[in-house]
Write a protein that binds this DNA or RNA. Structure first.
Lengths: 146, 146
DNA sequence: ATAGCCGCCGTACTAAGGTACGGAGTCAAG
DNA sequence: CTTGACTCCGTACCTTAGTACGGCGGCTAT
């Protein structure tokens, strides 16, 4: 017979830490294991559940979302629909994020270009913008120090 | 003469909350304002600094990074170089992030396609994968309830 | 029999960037 | 003279996904 799967063994098999398993249990993400006052011991479902959580996480779902799917887990089609909706929402969020990053890339690239185009003896636009307040600040510091 | 710029007025002008200004002061991001035991009052430098922080944040710099730049703020070219390095590092990080998001998009899209291609009476791959443990789980719950 | 690992438990801590709270003091207007 | 707006301060709390800690008990190999 196979050795009893304790929390440490389960964690190793699933590639997570013991603390993570305990954490998931507290969050209601995995079933409370059966145990008669003693150590927890886990069956294959627990292992499958941990693996599933990692897949869902790799899809970008939060633990909260994964938890919200648990209610539908027993109900085949509902679960499918719920999961699909979450994944679709996730795709939209990613598209937004990607657009933001593209815009940011454009902005930063343009900034660097402006920065590099300047003659070596002239500072970046940002420095120029801050120049007055910077020197004023330095002057004020000197005055206070004196 | 202009009214004294208190923390509330400064916060409104910069578009942040009073608490945020206090927080930045605690973090050493903006100069301690002069005050004789009474309320803080701020000059234009403080306002410019807040605006600069927001610009730097919009560039994706963390407050920690912004703080690390403060040392170079008074030294024109050093500041310029430091800022450029941070922005370049940021651009690289963004490129990595974008690649990750593209890969994730591809994976999720493929998943949804697989999901949708299936006949209406068959569940998603994920559901299929979980089917055994789901029904086993449901059976176990029924058994415990009975 | 003792060292060392494993399990148990609750609680506190991390990053980042603030937000919220509660009590007290100050100021001007009605 | 009171109301309301504003300020002061320290401290606690929020999000997410865990990590870390400390103390205690039990199993087992040496």
């Amino acid at each position: 017979m196979a050795a009893v799967r304790t929390i440490g063994r389960l964690a190793r098999e699933a590639g997570v830490s013991v603390e993570t398993v305990r954490y998931y249990e507290r969050q209601g993400l995995i079933d409370q294991p059966l145990r008669g006052g003693g150590p927890r011991h886990y069956d294959d479902r627990a292992l499958a559940m941990l693996r599933y959580i990692r897949v869902a996480q790799s899809f970008g779902l939060t633990l909260r979302e994964i938890h919200s799917l648990r209610g539908a887990l027993g109900t085949g089609r509902d679960f499918c629909v719920s999961l699909r909706r979450l994944v679709e929402a996730r795709l939209e969020a990613i598209a937004v994020k990607e657009a933001e990053l593209r815009a940011l890339t454009a902005e930063l690239t343009a900034f660097l270009a402006r920065c590099r185009e300047r003659p070596a003896d002239l500072p970046c636009p940002v420095v120029e913008e801050l120049a007055s307040l910077t020197t004023a600040s330095a002057a004020a510091r000197s005055a206070r120090a004196a």
